[in-house]
């Protein structure tokens, strides 16, 4: 059995790491390459870089940053944000990204998943899904969680698997930013419903939340940003805690 993965997520704007709450009040948090190196040394199993640049010029800066990360980081990393074509993916992979993450573009054009997995292999295609619980339903949102779609989480997850996604990165908008724990029930259902790895995102606040996301949510990996950036949960001690709780981690 592969170990459960802990994945710090870095938001990138114009080639710099930024911190903020709900994309508001962005604060420069430094050089992404240095931060990534620090996380890699502390035992991060993988890294996700989310490009939140607004303009094409800024995105070009991100590409050069991807190259620098690939040169220096010896663990796998995923790049997401604003990817909407085979060409976009080709460029990022040629700059050294190991995997790419797509979200809004595949909601607009689901067949893009087929084209990407056919050309690059499903192992490098992560489909990110942002969803919010409304009553009993989980509604999928696009455009960074701003626009509700007609898609329902569990159906969409099955569809992306069939179309060739290699992993699903599920962010619960109902839990994101609350620091009250991950969406275990939805994660458990997802894990039962599809046969590709699930990365859980949204809600991490304590080490116990990471224990719960693996034992109750059955997630394969857990992603978080602020708890790592602000060193509220040091990666090294998190890994120790998980080991003590008999969860297989590296």
């Amino acid at each position: 059995m592969v170990a459960k993965r802990i994945i710090p997520c870095l938001d990138i704007k114009n080639g710099r790491t930024v911190k903020g709450i709900n994309f508001q009040n962005l604060v420069d948090a430094g050089n992404p390459v240095e931060l990534a190196k620090r996380y890699a040394n502390q035992g991060a199993d993988e890294l996700v870089f989310l490009d939140i640049s607004a303009t094409l010029e800024e995105r070009k800066t991100t590409r050069n940053m991807v190259l620098k990360i690939a040169e220096q980081i010896n663990i796998p990393f995923t790049v997401g944000g604003g990817i909407s074509s085979v060409e976009d993916v080709d460029v990022l992979l040629k700059h050294g990204a190991d995997k790419i993450s797509v979200n809004s573009s595949v909601l607009r054009d689901p067949n893009l998943i087929n084209r990407l997995s056919h050309k690059f292999g499903s192992q490098c295609i992560v489909v990110a899904i942002d969803a919010k619980q409304i009553g009993e339903d989980w509604i999928v949102y696009s455009a960074g969680g701003t626009i509700p779609t007609k898609m329902e989480l569990f159906e969409w997850a099955k569809e992306v698997e069939l179309r060739g996604a290699g992993e699903i990165l599920f962010t619960s908008m109902s839990h994101d930013g609350t620091k009250k724990g991950f969406a275990h029930n939805a994660l458990y259902r997802l894990s039962q419903g599809v046969n590709i790895p699930i990365i859980a995102s949204g809600g991490a606040g304590t080490s116990q939340h990471f224990i719960d996301v693996f034992t109750q949510g059955k997630a394969d990996a857990a992603l978080a940003a602020s708890v790592f950036h602000f060193n509220e949960i040091p990666l090294i001690s998190l890994k120790e805690t998980l080991k003590m709780n008999h969860i297989k981690v590296r």
């Binding site: 592969v2 046969n195 590296r250």
Partner: peptide, 12 residues
């Protein structure tokens, strides 16, 4: 086989 999630991704 089908009881393993594929692709198998991660550290072993």
């Amino acid at each position: 086989s089908n009881n393993i999630k594929v692709p198998q991704v991660g550290w072993n």
